[in-house]
Write a protein that binds this DNA or RNA. Structure first.
Length: 956
DNA sequence: AAGAAAAAAAAA
């Protein structure tokens, strides 16, 4: 398509005089007509070379001439997005450029004369009003249908206008056209620009038909996102130089083509439905051990993905260790190909699990079929991704494939195994960085928060939506989220359904009611939709649930792979002496025990008592109150001692841990002692028991055994310790104990994974559980629980976007009451998790001479690096210090004390560190640990040791 | 009074 000098040729000198951009450093500027050209050209290139097929189809589906119309619409909207700059309210801002316009005949008052009223007419809003007026008056559209198109212009600064601001501007046409004799000139120029865009960008002949279109809100969103992306690229002065120098390179396709080559944005992934059988598919995509067989759940997931009427939501429920991750990736490849997704977003509950997933995704990408020269953009997305080694390597380009040129000159890539294989180059593209642009990378591994943000009313939300709309989404550990996060998740799923984004949800222990909620949210179904009753009633495990929009959900019931074992559960009275005695008896012949406590306080007091009994070397502590590097090292050491291939497994050892031992660590113990916890978590903990087949377990420990403690069992209704009740609530704890009653003390053993589903469903279902005399206590707990959950849901709604509105209803007011941008208030930050306030510090060491350094034991060359307080620390030292983050206990973040804590920490925020060249440390709170590990803060005495982590006592 | 783990932060 020719996008040459056409726009300029269509415009009068007056219209050509309108400016759009100005660089006050060098006086460079850009006329509006040129920025219109640039933006439109970039939008066309994005449409052709970057936008995933799914998004093109989504837009095309609602327009009379399909995707051809879709491209025209995107290009035209990008072309006109800054029309609001052709107003006195905008143009008066730069005197010298305003004078050019005045000389051409466009009169306007000075900036000062317009004054504060200028903010009534920000150029996005002004543009929307002008475009709506033009469609109505010049093209004869009914007023009510113009908003659905014009809101894309109105929202191009990240927030679609709301009704009050439209109303406020309505009475102020003087801001859009200088009143009096010159008004007609302004009107003509604005009309001229819009006429020229319509003609130049090929929509002149289309507007007649488009007035009958009702644009669904999801389409308005992705178009808004695309226009913003085009604007950001076209506003890059390096790519699109300002005038007068920039005028040399002409306008339109030549200028844009050169910029596009310089930008070098990787295109999106173009998946193809694999034709292989499931066995071949798994063998080619994953590095499986020799002789590995595809598990029934994996095969069923792929077959279901192939067979669903429309690619939609696939929920996979199966026990740990059934290869759900591989199943998800294989199913995602099929679904992505069917839906036309251009990438995958893999969402996990924590930064640690995201970090662990990242290299697995990279090696899967290496094995995906690819065409010559394909490049795929990849990103690790969470707040500390910058500290991750794999992500840093990718950024440094070290993962570039080693290309060898064979005789015919065809470039072949060499895979890690040495054999030649077509493989795409994986890149972390420089443009695709930052909070708002990163998600636009084709492949993203990140925390689920990054997905939930798609439900948060915040500026530039449309970019995040554009990013997810073009992907297939995998959500891991879907049971791990609370009511607050689930409110966001369900809302986001509704939008994903509307975009036709395929979603794979993974869970080991999903309550049936949640299963139904997820399915209905995605399908956009009403809460009482009868078709979803079977989804909630299904009791099989493993279980697949496939939901296509508008179709009846389909359930699949693959077999288990046959591995399984039994765990005997037993009640143990709470008390350190009781515990030590029992462990002494159980471990008399050696063996390794895991003791899981629900609070850090209990972990530390237990460890102290057990060290006295068994000696300091026989006891290890693990919880989250360690600095990041120590926490990682703790995990690493546990794997080394108790992992699958542990060569140095101790003869007799006890690990005392908080909930950190519950998740994602592939460790194996001979005996488990656990504080009472909700049954799904207790089952997770039991998963650390006899995980691997091992020779030579001591005879007494040959049967897997779990002792449940942390409860006063003598009470009429068992009474969990205080901390447990605070954390999990009496409701979940009591119901869990109730369903475990038949298993306790010589009852039948828990069958893993056979009993998992029934136990979870009984606890989280509404049915009667427990003996009759527990009933009043259970009922009371239920009421408290329901009130608490309702409160969480209410709080979540406060900043959660609504469901997609009726087709054709403009996005006006979509983000009204948003959390805003660059939000520095404490309340404005953590919005997708319902968390209490918390204080995070970077721990550094104060040396004998009073100087600061990174903690000496940090390892990997990070320890003992000097941190001068009167200068900017070296990048290495700063980065090492940033890897020593520590969250202070919530007690120190309570409202009455937090200000004092922060104020006292501020004495260590050194002025020289607060600079842009020091991104690792600027704005961080620093906690120096004095020699002897002690320090005091806001009346608390703090002690940090490598053995126990942070210990806090109240000195007052 | 105090009690888990978890996440998070620049635009045109």
């Amino acid at each position: 398509m020719s996008e040459g000098d056409g726009l300029r040729a269509r415009l009068s000198a007056q219209a050509l005089s309108v400016w759009a951009k100005h660089d006050k450093d060098n006086g460079g500027w850009l006329p509006l007509w040129c920025h219109m050209h640039d933006s439109a050209a970039v939008a066309g290139l994005l449409w052709d070379c970057w936008l995933p097929a799914r998004v093109r189809a989504l837009v095309g589906r609602v327009l009379p001439e399909g995707e051809v119309d879709g491209r025209r619409l995107a290009v035209w909207l990008a072309g006109v997005h800054d029309i609001g700059k052709a107003t006195p309210a905008f143009a008066c801002q730069v005197e010298v450029l305003a004078d050019r316009m005045r000389a051409a005949g466009l009169e306007m008052p000075s900036r000062r004369a317009v004054g504060a009223d200028r903010r009534l007419a920000p150029h996005g809003l002004a543009g929307q009003v002008l475009l709506q007026e033009w469609l109505e008056e010049q093209r004869g559209w009914p007023g009510r249908v113009t908003g659905q198109f014009a809101v894309v212009v109105g929202g191009h600064h990240g927030v679609p206008p709301d009704h009050p601001s439209l109303r406020d501007l309505d009475g102020r046409w003087d801001l859009l056209r200088t009143p009096g004799g010159n008004e007609g000139v302004w009107r003509r120029v604005q009309g001229e620009l819009l006429d020229a865009c319509a003609a130049e960008f090929g929509v002149e002949g289309r507007l007649g038909e488009w007035r009958g279109v009702r644009l669904p809100q999801p389409v308005q969103v992705v178009l808004s996102g695309l226009v913003i992306m085009a604007d950001w690229i076209a506003s890059n002065e390096d790519l699109f130089p300002y005038f007068p120098a920039g005028s040399e390179c002409g306008a339109g396709s030549g200028r844009a083509g050169a910029a596009w080559r310089d930008l070098d944005l990787p295109g999106s992934w173009r998946p193809v439905v694999p034709r292989d059988g499931v066995g071949e598919l798994f063998a080619s995509r994953f590095d499986l051990p020799a002789g590995a067989v595809v598990r029934p759940v994996q095969a069923a997931a792929v077959e279901t993905a192939r067979g669903m009427p429309e690619p939609g939501l696939l929920i996979v429920e199966a026990p740990m260790g059934e290869g759900k991750t591989e199943a998800a990736l294989a199913a995602a490849e099929v679904l992505a190909a069917r839906a036309g997704s251009g990438g995958v977003f893999f969402a996990l509950p924590t930064m640690a699990t995201s970090n662990a997933m990242f290299p697995r995704l990279l090696s899967w990408l290496d094995r995906l079929p690819a065409g010559d020269g394909d490049r795929l953009s990849v990103l690790l997305a969470h707040s500390k991704a910058a500290l991750n080694k794999d992500a840093a390597e990718l950024r440094a380009g070290s993962r570039k494939r080693i290309a060898s040129v064979d005789v015919d000159g065809a470039v072949q890539t060499v895979s890690a195994g040495g054999e030649a294989a077509a493989s795409a180059e994986l890149v972390a593209h420089h443009w695709l960085v930052g909070r708002k642009k990163g998600m636009l990378s084709s492949f993203v591994v990140g925390t689920v928060d990054q997905l939930l943000f798609a439900g948060l009313r915040a500026r530039h939300l449309v970019l995040r939506h554009l990013a997810v709309a073009g992907k297939t989404v995998v959500i891991d550990e879907a049971h791990a989220y609370d009511t607050y996060m689930n409110t966001y998740l369900d809302r986001v799923l509704g939008w994903l359904g509307a975009y036709g984004v395929p979603v794979v949800v993974l869970s080991a222990t999903l309550p049936a009611a949640r299963r139904r909620e997820l399915a209905q949210a995605y399908a956009g179904a009403a809460g009482d939709d009868e078709r979803f009753v079977p989804v909630e009633q299904a009791r099989e495990y493993p279980l697949l649930t496939a939901v296509s929009r508008g179709a009846v959900p389909v359930l699949g019931r693959p077999a288990v792979s046959g591995r399984g074992y039994e765990v005997r559960v037993e009640r143990l009275d709470d008390g350190l002496g009781v515990l030590a005695d029992r462990l002494e008896a159980e471990l008399a012949g050696g063996g390794c025990a895991l003791v899981v406590r629900n609070t850090v306080g209990r972990v530390l007091e237990t460890a102290k008592a057990l060290r006295e009994r068994f000696g300091p070397r026989a006891v290890t502590v693990a919880h989250s109150r360690f600095i990041d590097v120590d926490r990682a090292e703790n995990d690493h050491r546990l794997l080394e001692l108790f992992g699958r291939d542990a060569a140095v497994r101790p003869g007799r050892h006890i690990v005392v841990a908080s909930q950190v031992a519950e998740q994602s660590l592939d460790v194996d113990f001979d005996l488990l002692v656990s504080d009472a916890a909700p049954v799904d978590l207790l089952l997770q903990r039991m998963g650390r028991l006899h995980r691997h087949a091992r020779e030579g377990r001591p005879a007494v420990l040959r049967d897997a055994k779990c002792l449940v403690t942390g409860v006063d069992w003598s009470a009429a209704v068992p009474k969990p310790v205080r901390g447990s009740e605070f954390i999990y609530g009496r409701h979940a704890l009591l119901r869990s104990l109730a369903v475990l009653l038949p298993f306790f003390d010589g009852g039948r053993p828990v069958d893993l994974p056979g009993d998992i589903s029934a136990l979870v469903q009984d606890v989280y279902g509404g049915g009667q559980v427990g003996p009759a005399d527990w009933a009043p206590a259970l009922e009371e707990a239920r009421l408290v629980h329901e009130k608490l959950q309702a409160g969480k849901a209410d709080r979540a709604e406060q900043f959660c976007i609504g469901e997609a509105g009726k087709d054709g209803r403009p996005l006006i007011g979509w983000l009204a009451g948003s959390v805003g941008d660059a939000d520095d208030t404490r309340a404005g930050r953590a919005q997708v998790r319902d968390s209490e306030e918390c204080v995070e510090v970077l721990v550094v060491e104060e040396l004998g001479d009073g100087s600061l350094a990174t903690v000496h034991w940090a390892g990997e060359g990070r320890g003992g690096l000097a941190l001068p307080t009167d200068a900017v620390p070296s990048p290495e030292a700063a980065r090492a210090a940033a890897a020593c983050g520590l969250r202070l206990p919530v007690a120190m973040a309570k409202p009455h004390i937090v200000d004092r804590v922060v104020a006292e920490l501020k004495q260590f925020s050194f002025e020289k560190w607060q600079t842009k060249e020091n991104p690792w440390l600027a704005g961080q709170l620093i906690l120096p640990i004095r020699p002897g590990c002690q320090t005091s803060l806001a009346g608390f005495r703090l002690m940090y040791t490598r053995e126990n982590g942070l210990e806090v006592s109240n000195a007052r």
